[in-house]
Simulated scan of single mutants.
Amino acid sequence: MIIDTHCHIYGSEMENAEQIIKESAKNDICVILNGTDPLSNNEILELADKYENVYGALGYFHTIADEVTEEDISLLDSQLGNDKIVAVGEIGLDYYHTKDNKDNQKQLFEKMLNLAQKHGLPVIVHSRKSMQDTYDILKCHDVVGSMHCYQGSAEMAHEFIKLGFYMGIGGPITNTNNKKTRKMIRKIDIGHMLVETDSPYLTPQEKRGEKNTPLNIKYVIRKISEELNMKENEVVEITTQNARDLFKF
């Protein structure tokens, strides 16, 4: 089995979501669908209940930081008790598009981390142009998890690893000009890596121009195996066990 630890395969993101889920199952791929708002969280709950190879992470993303209400937080709190929900995510900080609502982003992130602590769940964290703030907040909470699509340095990766985090490696590692990520994975142990696609986004270079799907996880695995001089089946075995250890399924 291969575990795609981060993707967005549901109706509000992909019109053929259920077909893709079925194809993934046929290829022995288990997916962790990540929510970003109440709509996607509800879609994930329905799909996780319907398909054996689907698990979920529920959360509120930085994009709705200015509009989340306490009622929304209470709703999410009640949903996190579902047996097939294995993490709080996708959550985090993003200063790439706007820095105007930094405080609201941080407050929402803190609330998500508090819910993760309450439910004993790991977190799946997005951090773009906000790495230091992300780290400073995480180190003040008793949580472990995944740094989704980690694009930072090896030195910073080691700091997150000390907190109990794995580095999520996805399609960007296949990009010819992305030497930074390939250098980073050579400096950390594969025991601290997870594989992901972020479908339908971040399509590997081999399928550039197409919408990404969990079936493209093979290109991520291939590139990791090349960079670490390992067999592909070894990469699958270790990263799958890493995911099982973190997400407890």
Rank of each mutant, 00 (worst) to 15 (best):
D100P: 04
Q151M: 13
S127F: 08
P122T: 00
M112Y: 04
L93V: 09
M112I: 07
M131D: 13
K111T: 07
D94H: 09
F160L: 12
Y150T: 00
I124S: 14
G152N: 08
S130M: 11
M131Y: 12
H119I: 03
E90R: 05
N114S: 11
A157H: 11
G120A: 09
D133T: 14
L113R: 08
G152I: 14
L93A: 04
A116Y: 01
K106T: 14
Y96G: 00
M156W: 13
S153D: 09
H126L: 11
P122W: 01
G145M: 09
K102A: 11
I161H: 10
H141F: 13
D94A: 08
K129G: 00
L115C: 07
S153P: 01
D136V: 05
N101L: 03
H97V: 03
H97F: 15
D142Q: 15
I124V: 15
V144Q: 13
E159L: 14
V144E: 03
L108A: 10
Q151P: 01
M131S: 12
L121A: 02
C140A: 11
E110Y: 05
H126I: 11
Q107M: 08
I91D: 01
Y135G: 07
A116M: 02
I124F: 00
F160A: 13
F160K: 13
L163E: 08
D136F: 07
G92D: 03
Q151N: 10
D133H: 13
V143A: 10
E110N: 07
H141S: 07
V123K: 02
F109D: 02
L115I: 08
H126R: 07
E90F: 08
H97C: 05
F160H: 09
H97Q: 02
E90V: 11
C140D: 14
S130C: 11
G145C: 10
Y135S: 03
L115T: 03
S153I: 12
Q117N: 05
E110D: 03
K106C: 06
L108H: 04
G120W: 04
N101M: 04
A116W: 02
V125I: 15
S153K: 13
T98R: 11
V125G: 02
H97N: 13
D103F: 13
K129I: 12
E155I: 15
C149K: 01
D94R: 08
K129N: 14
D133Y: 10
N104V: 02
L113I: 06
A157L: 12
I124T: 07
E155R: 15
L108W: 01
N104W: 00
I91R: 07
K106Q: 12
D94Q: 06
M156A: 13
Y95P: 02
D103G: 08
T134S: 14
V144P: 00
Y95G: 03
M112N: 08
Y150Q: 02
P122D: 02
